[in-house]
Design a protein around this nucleic acid. Structure first.
Lengths: 332, 332
DNA sequence: TCAAGGTGGTAATACGAATTATCACCGCGA
DNA sequence: TCGCGGTGATAATTCGTATTACCACCTTGA
């Protein structure tokens, strides 16, 4: 149409006009006009093959992105991710094709489209260590949403500051006069659990009190509640929101007053569908939307920036006053 | 490593062993072994450039995919889309980078990554007619979720059968003895609204009754309710769930009994955040998850199949009994 | 011994844009 | 007239895979 070469079109398209390359203003105008009238758009695939990037960010989740039955725990993360991507003019590639093996999706498989994106965001409670290691080894730009321990090298992440948030919650209970606190949950396994336990221990250590731990695995709420009462616990610090709901409900059914007889502190939002309750739990909120947002920020920085130091960011959690913390009643 | 050419690797990788091409089993094994030990994966970008498709489906929404404040009306569609894509081994490309102009996102812009996908699913109440026309003209495989009128040619879609569902609801009201029914809503504009109105008219025509229409734009619930009562309407057929909630609430506040004094029929799920209510509305449910699922099915069919006839699919809605329909009370 | 036919693999090219070395041209001064 | 520097655009190459025409080699039968 304009009688110029493909190279010239490419140069105009990319606005290259630095010292090395020059285009006559008149020619540039002609090309731009042709582009406008034809609606020509550079093929993003060829672009990506020839150049470095294509402004596409991969999103890998170990669970379905759009959960059907679960409590939509991941939704807020994705809201943040999308908001930030939209602002930056990036598209999102949801790696939904990942086949399931051993109970979770796998990043690496024989027809993996991850490398089509400039980089990727990883979402999920537990990330496969080997896969993380491979990402690190291959130099794939990526960010984990949620803190991760090293995996063949430091892992870039944007996590929630569970230790600080948990410590703060425990301190509030201490300030209210509690001296018999117990941690209900795994307290180990995924970093997010271990970190809560760390915060729990730190706050109790500082107060010179013993950290009690009641594992929840394979124990019914009734069993747990019995143990708490038998050991004189006045404040239960609950890892999983759903467990807190179950215990609170059971306690009430038994005629106990929550929080007067038993304070219950929830360490974050529900990750499993929980029974509906009118209780407003004292604890903290995970800054999910902001974490998603920050993850994209960090990722794009990683993509554009060179091999700087590994970004590891902890976002503070927002305290929730709630109504499940009170000074312990006099011993009965 | 194996001393074979790039072409051979490609052939082995793609399992080509039909009549035209032959690979010695021994060679194939050697190559496969090398692939296994190195963990080699074909670059999806180059793959896409050379071949026709890459099993990536675009998802374009005129509103954010992960809505923050709205009632998550679109979520179930996406659940269906993801489920089906996962089953088919497809990844999803969310076209979040589309810039906003005139109040909604635009598919076509100067750095449009749509063509990176094999085809795309369109989601949104109102799709821009010009953009649809351009998609049709360019021969881009796409499917609209929701029926669309022609736009420079027939538009492939997977829609909800609003006419049939609305007719069925109206017939239930007629069977219950109602003779004074009114349609509350736009009844025009987006196809989904016009289709509901069509079903409403059809059912009343068949019964020899006049179809009344009360536009809701710029009218308060109080104004609407006044009009309904003044004109002796006993059953309100409400386009927007949220409007139904507002009117029901107002009616109750005025001492009316819903449904004895006024039946209210809801034509589908909430698309706007609605006030919470304990009322279980009679009406129907939009098969959103299935629509998303079917849209992906249709799209992949379109991509693989040749230029057959344009697929246009209407999925039936699920009736909801609810508790807002009763026989009209004797005139007061 | 030679053509015919079957086997297994490779060289070459396409895909569409980005990049860079190179070139043609012009005006000007020596 | 020759050379030189500045301008503007292009030819050629690259990215990594898919595809196909083609070739070298071997066996077989006459």
């Amino acid at each position: 149409m304009t009688g110029v070469s493909q190279a010239t079109v490419s140069l105009v398209l990319n606005g290259r006009d630095d010292g090395t390359v020059r285009i006559a203003p008149e020619t540039r105008e002609r090309v731009l006009h042709a582009i406008r009238t034809t609606g020509y758009v550079a093929d993003p695939v060829a672009r990506r093959l020839a150049a470095r990037h294509n402004r596409i960010l991969g999103v890998f989740t170990y669970e379905p992105v759009f959960p059907a039955g679960t409590g939509d725990f991941y939704h807020p993360f994705l809201v943040g991710i999308e908001e930030c991507a939209e602002r930056l003019g990036c598209d999102l590639l949801l790696l939904t094709s990942a086949p399931v093996a051993d109970g979770h999706r796998r990043i690496f498989h024989d027809d993996n489209r991850l490398r089509l994106a400039d980089g990727c965001v990883l979402l999920g409670r537990t990330l496969d260590r080997d896969e993380l290691a491979r990402l690190v080894a291959e130099g794939q730009p990526f960010v984990s949403v949620g803190r991760r321990d090293d995996a063949g090298g430091p892992v870039p992440y944007v996590g929630a500051d569970y230790p600080a948030a948990t410590s703060a919650v425990v301190r509030r209970a201490l300030d209210a006069g509690h001296t018999a606190l117990a941690y209900l949950g795994q307290g180990a396994g995924p970093e997010s659990h271990a970190d809560r336990m760390t915060g729990f221990r730190a706050a109790l250590d500082a107060a010179g009190l013993p950290p009690r731990h009641e594992p929840t695995a394979d124990r019914s709420p009734a069993e747990l509640l019995d143990t708490l009462l038998a050991t004189g616990v006045t404040a239960a610090v609950v890892e999983e929101y759903a467990d807190g709901v179950a215990i609170a409900q059971l306690a009430r059914e038994r005629g106990l007053d929550v929080p007067r007889d038993l304070s219950i502190l929830a360490l974050g939002d529900p990750t499993r569908p929980a029974a509906t309750t009118d209780l407003d739990f004292t604890g903290f909120r995970i800054p999910r939307r902001e974490m998603g947002w920050q993850a994209v920020e960090v990722l794009t920085g990683l993509i554009e920036g060179g091999p700087e130091d590994v970004p590891q960011l902890l976002v503070p959690c927002q305290p929730v006053d709630g109504a499940t913390l009170a000074s312990p009643a006099a011993p009965r």
